[in-house]
Amino acid sequence: MSNWQEIDTYVKHWIKEAGERIRQSFKTQLNIQTKSNRNDLVTNVDQETEQFFIERIRNIYPDHHILGEEGFGDELKDMKGTIWIIDPIDGTMNFVHQQRNFAISIGIYHDGEGMLGYIYDVVHDELYHGRKGHGAYMNDLELPPLQEVDVRDSIIGVNALWVTDNNRINKEVLGPLVRDVRGTRSYGSAAMEMAYVASGRIDGYMTMRLAPWDFAAGKILIEEVGGVVTSLDGKELDMLQKSSVFSCKPGLHENISKTYLKDVSIKKI
């Protein structure tokens, strides 16, 4: 069994070092490429940051496995053993255009169970971190348990795309929810939005398609403060597959699911 406290110490040190490297990169010109489409960006900083983590993990924990967004990790067929799920920069479009509203995201799982989660808001130097059974924190501040909230008093993170014509979900499904909540927000980084759910800055976050490196860390943090994280149709997330994600405060998750999402259907592409 891994020494989680030792791993936690290493990760916090590495994340802060990687964050400083990223802040220094603001002074240089980025090499920007596209992946699946012109809006799916990757920079040399994404790639270099992932390689930074992989090099250090391999050096200290050679028997651990790595799943990384930029493809420098391992090809995984199951969740056996200890697996680091890494997004070196979640919110690359924000990183490129705004130099803010992006995060480093690392979730560490053992035999499929989330053990350690980290979401680092590099620009604001806010590290959201949690360990299974030991709560979640923002820097040194312990995050309180999430409290139930009425739909009408809630703020939900959701991209406006999902209430317009799109190829994932009927645009009519989320319209009533958007009308009924107090407000909606879209920050452009799944990791940041899930950190905001964990810290109570927003009450829920939903999206139609994320990869495991987008939600691995956030799931651990939210569950440590009593929140619920599932697919949009209420199923357990598969940490090796892309999925819709619905993370929410307790009670609110159930109310939204029953009232607005009972017949939801997500198209796979």
Rank of each mutant, 00 (worst) to 15 (best):
L240H: 01
D238A: 10
G227N: 02
F246P: 01
S154M: 05
M138I: 15
E17F: 09
E55N: 12
E70W: 08
L177A: 05
S247Y: 02
I119E: 05
R38S: 15
I85Y: 00
A160S: 14
V151D: 05
V123L: 09
E142L: 06
T49R: 09
R21A: 11
S2L: 15
G175C: 14
Y187I: 14
F72R: 08
E148M: 09
A136E: 04
S265R: 15
L221E: 01
I106W: 03
D74I: 04
I7K: 06
Y120R: 01
T43S: 11
Y137E: 05
Y120E: 03
A191S: 15
L237H: 01
N167S: 14
I104Q: 03
A195M: 09
Q98R: 15
T184A: 08
M192I: 15
I169E: 02
A211D: 13
Q99K: 15
G251P: 00
F52V: 05
M208Q: 08
I119A: 04
R209K: 14
F52H: 05
T184W: 06
L232M: 15
K249I: 02
D121N: 12
I85C: 02
G133V: 04
F215S: 04
E69R: 03
N94A: 04
L67T: 00
N166M: 07
G81C: 06
K12G: 14
Q5C: 09
